[in-house]
Computed example of a mutant assay.
Amino acid sequence: MTTPLVSVIIPNYNYGRTLGECIAATQRQTYPNIEVIVADDASTDDSVAIASRLGVTVLETDVNAGVSTARNRGAERAQGEVLFFVDSDVALAPDAVAEAVEQLLADERLGAVCGMYQAEPMFPDSLVKRYRAIQQFVWFTEIDGPIPGLHSALFAIRTAVFREIGPFNDRLRWTEEQDYGFRLNAKYVVLATSTVTGRHDHDGTLRVMLTKVFQRTRLGAPNWVRLRALPGGAGSGHRALGSAFLLAAVAALLLPIVFGPPALLACPVLAGISVALDGRTYAYAYRHHGVLFGLQFTVLHMLVTLTSAVAAGVGILQGLLFPRMTRRLYRVGTPA
């Protein structure tokens, strides 16, 4: 295999607690020809000092402008023929870059090679982190192959292709990877592979996790409707339907007011259908971590599922009521 220079670009904002491990993981790569660039987005913690101490190139912005701006700035300074973007809360497996480059160079039709999260978080110090790691691991592993979106947290792309497609949309702070994935898929194949992995330090509190789920789903939903595509794999449709059933189950709690106590049976029936539609996710938690953790996982996953359902409904309604806003946000039919 040829060994072109790979520029590993790490966008960062106030992730000093994980940045050191992220950089160290890039420096432990088996691939021999790497430059590491930390694009710091005006952090107020000790991120810049950590990165500087570890001997990598550090770029700093004057004001916090978002992850898209940080990624774009890192790409502008990169010298490599291949760009490997990895978020500052992800520690790559030692062979991640080598595996990505090998697959990327083997097929000119590939626009990007995306990696997947491992089933354990970088720092398993909270129940919410462990839940989120399992949830995303299960969802990622069902889409080993071409995908309609992009896993922006860890992916490799030829520099020439990045220049052709253009930079990340700096208007987007929550859905930039969905937008870029759709743009990239218009000309190339985007591949997700389980041979490229990393440990992600997932959100540690319920409030932060649910806030991110709500915002990303709400902002992404109008674009999914516009493009008639979901960003996930084959199970995305089942899970979306399962979210709707769980929302209906909550709404069914009001049925006894009109139809009497027997109508309350609709709630567990609808909730059971929701669980069945996402059965693979629940089954993994119980099978690998036991009943106690499985019950905790179930509660958290239902909260996330319900949050997604509400957010999708709000987002779709916003898209229908304000279509020009969605088109302008994603630069559809407007000047760049």
Rank of each mutant, 00 (worst) to 15 (best):
G272F: 06
R163A: 13
R280G: 04
Q79I: 05
A283R: 09
A283T: 10
I316T: 00
T61M: 05
E108K: 07
A240P: 04
G74V: 08
D41V: 10
G233Q: 14
V56W: 03
L110W: 08
F245Q: 02
R73P: 12
Q103P: 07
L303F: 06
F123E: 14
G290Y: 03
A25V: 09
V90G: 12
V189G: 10
M122S: 14
V86P: 04
V225T: 02
L303H: 04
A276F: 15
Y117M: 09
Q79P: 05
H151L: 07
L227N: 10
E99R: 07
L264T: 02
A98L: 08
A229E: 01
L255G: 08
V58E: 12
I165V: 15
A192P: 04
E120L: 11
P148F: 07
S68Y: 13
A156H: 02
G242F: 05
K212E: 11
V161Y: 14
G272N: 09
D87R: 11
V48S: 10
R218E: 14
F297H: 03
V310G: 01
G319F: 03
S274A: 02
A65T: 15
G55D: 07
V213Q: 05
V63N: 15
R132C: 15
G333Q: 12
A160G: 06
V138L: 02
R280C: 07
H202C: 14
